[in-house]
Amino acid sequence: MEIYLIRHTTPKIEKGICYGQSDIPLAPSFELEAQKIIQENTFLDSDCLVYSSPLQRCRLLAQKLFPRAKIVYDNRLKELDFGVWELQAWNEINPSELQVWMDDFVKIRCPKGESYTDLNHRVIDFKQSLKINTPTKIAIITHAGVIRAFLAQHNNIALKDSFQYKVPYGVVTVIS
């Protein structure tokens, strides 16, 4: 089985804004970015089981990449819930509150939000729901945090070390 983890394309939001589970639109470059993904990935022509975060930045890309597929939208594939920090500028968040979280973002929850461990549990639950022995291809259109959690689990590394994985917008990461 091959799993294709596809990060959404560039969102339409100012740099420096915390936007985890906020349902923000895509940048005007969406069509060009989506075409680049299509041109560079032959697996898109094959039959895949397709899963996506329901947030529009993933949903619209899933529909563009897999126009004939039955896409399953799954809340477990959403980005980290930053709670009360959603849509705030990072530099405007209370510095002492932010520092507590940054010192142990794996275990500490954002105020009224999630920790990275919470996100990781969602990913584990999602993976367990897949038919692991299925000889098929699975495409998952999702967010950087979810992709890093998948990679940490797959490569057996600590969550705190998963930020070594660079996950640019529109990138496809393959797990076999």
Rank of each mutant, 00 (worst) to 15 (best):
V106Q: 12
P25F: 07
S29T: 13
Y19M: 05
S115T: 10
P111F: 08
F105Q: 11
V123F: 09
R76G: 00
D74K: 01
N75G: 05
T42R: 12
V172G: 10
E114K: 09
W85T: 07
N75R: 11
R68L: 02
L32C: 03
Q128I: 04
V72T: 14
S96C: 05
L26A: 02
N156H: 15
Q35T: 03
I38W: 10
S129I: 02
E92T: 15
G170K: 08
D104V: 08
K36N: 11
V72Q: 09
N75L: 07
V123S: 06
C48P: 10
W101T: 03
V172H: 11
Y165A: 08
L87K: 14
H121W: 08
F30P: 02
T117R: 12
L32S: 14
V50C: 06
I132C: 05
V50Y: 08
I175V: 12
F150Y: 13
Y169M: 05
S22E: 09
C48W: 11
A34R: 12
I157E: 10
E79N: 06
R7N: 07
K166P: 00
D161R: 13
D103I: 01
F150E: 10
S129H: 14
Q63R: 13
Q88N: 11
I132L: 12
V146G: 04
Y4T: 02
N133S: 15
E31C: 03
D45T: 10
I37T: 05
S52Q: 10
I71M: 02
R122I: 05
K127S: 09
S162W: 08
D103N: 15
R148A: 03
A89L: 09
I175K: 09
F30L: 07
L159K: 10
S52T: 06
I6S: 01
N120F: 12
L44C: 08
P54Y: 08
R76H: 04
A69V: 00
D118Q: 06
E14Q: 14
W101F: 15
K127D: 03
S46V: 03
R68G: 01
I17E: 11
L159Q: 07
E97D: 13
R68Q: 14
L65K: 07
N94T: 11
K78I: 00
D161H: 12
I138V: 15
Y51S: 05
E86Q: 13
K166G: 01
T10E: 15
V172A: 08
